[in-house]
Design a protein around this nucleic acid. Structure first.
Length: 290
DNA sequence: TCCCAGGCCTCGG
DNA sequence: CCGAGGCATGGG
């Protein structure tokens, strides 16, 4: 199955980006990204890899997920439906973004389709280094040991929200998750398990402001966490995680600042990007890569 | 030792 | 509404 993008897409950037993460929910090797997932309640394992017309998907194991559902999943995951040229037209007019997008033609945001994963990551990722956050994520997911075995490999699946909400504080503390984060995870996952929070419910909101207010009403979800979810999962093109350490460092570099920029500075500079704020953020993060 | 990591909550003014 | 302090842990 071949999927074309709406505008430019270069799989090698997706591949490089994913290679730099230490995410236990996919494997990267030999030009392929392999992922196990539960779609519509059924397990599936598939590879994605470069194709001249976009990205090729090869299903390796399937409990009955339709091709259409796998296709929609990949489009969502790799953000293939977004009109990236529209962003580029804007970026070329901006002195800060113009050099940043140069050399990254066809780089797209890697999304998080699962809200369970998105909330878990938003909480675990707070304050600590990304590499440590990935260690914590791995510990939580490996604890449940849901996986698909294939060709000698083991491919992990996200646990269900109710499984996560039934974890004890002590179990999470044993994984070196902080006390407060443990509380947040258990609470949020019980909301997802009960349906108070659902992807459809979040997608049904009319405006950015409304869904942001709803998200930050939960303990443990602040502006940064809410905006990471708005970006990667709900695809709000104006979402920017103000206060993010990566944005601070990126702006310090692009704007040649002596010190780390203040929150008002970041807010002012990213707000003017409007509906391009999300992709501006995604590209600014890349200036910190080597 | 101190500061920073893909922050957030609580509390005192 | 705003700023300070605490939280957990690893790395420079």
């Amino acid at each position: 199955m071949i999927i074309a993008a709406n505008g430019p897409f270069d799989f090698s950037f997706t591949y490089d980006y994913m290679s730099r993460q230490d995410d236990c929910l996919y494997d990267v090797s030999d030009g392929r990204i392999r992922k196990a997932e539960i779609i519509n309640g059924k397990r599936v394992l598939f590879d994605i890899y470069r194709n001249d017309d976009g990205v090729e998907v090869e299903v390796l194991m399937n409990d009955g997920v339709s091709d259409r559902a796998v296709r929609d999943y990949v489009i969502d995951w790799l953000d293939l439906s977004y009109d990236l040229d529209d962003f580029y037209r804007f970026a070329k007019t901006d002195t800060r973004l113009s050099p940043v997008v140069d050399g990254l033609y066809g780089f797209r945001m890697v999304g998080k389709v699962s809200i369970v994963e998105a909330f878990l990551w938003a909480i675990l990722g707070q304050q600590i280094t990304k590499s440590f956050a990935y260690v914590l994520k791995r510990r939580v997911i490996e604890y449940f040991n849901h996986h698909i075995n294939y060709d000698g490999g083991k491919y992990y699946l996200m646990p269900a929200p109710r499984e996560l909400s039934h974890l004890s504080i002590d179990t999470l503390r044993g994984m070196q998750v902080s006390n407060r984060k443990a509380e947040y995870i258990i609470d949020i996952m019980s909301h997802i398990g009960e349906g108070t929070i659902s992807k459809d419910g979040l997608l049904a909101y009319e405006s950015y402001d409304e869904v942001l207010d709803f998200l930050v009403s939960f303990r443990g979800i602040g502006p940064w966490s809410a905006n990471t979810i708005l970006m990667r999962t709900l695809k709000y093109r104006n979402a920017v995680p103000i206060g993010d350490a990566g944005i601070k460092n990126a702006l310090m570099k692009t704007d040649d600042l002596e010190a780390r920029p203040s929150k008002p500075y970041i807010e002012r500079e990213t707000l003017k990007y409007g509906s391009y704020g999300m992709y501006a953020t995604v590209y600014l993060w890349e200036v910190l890569v080597q």
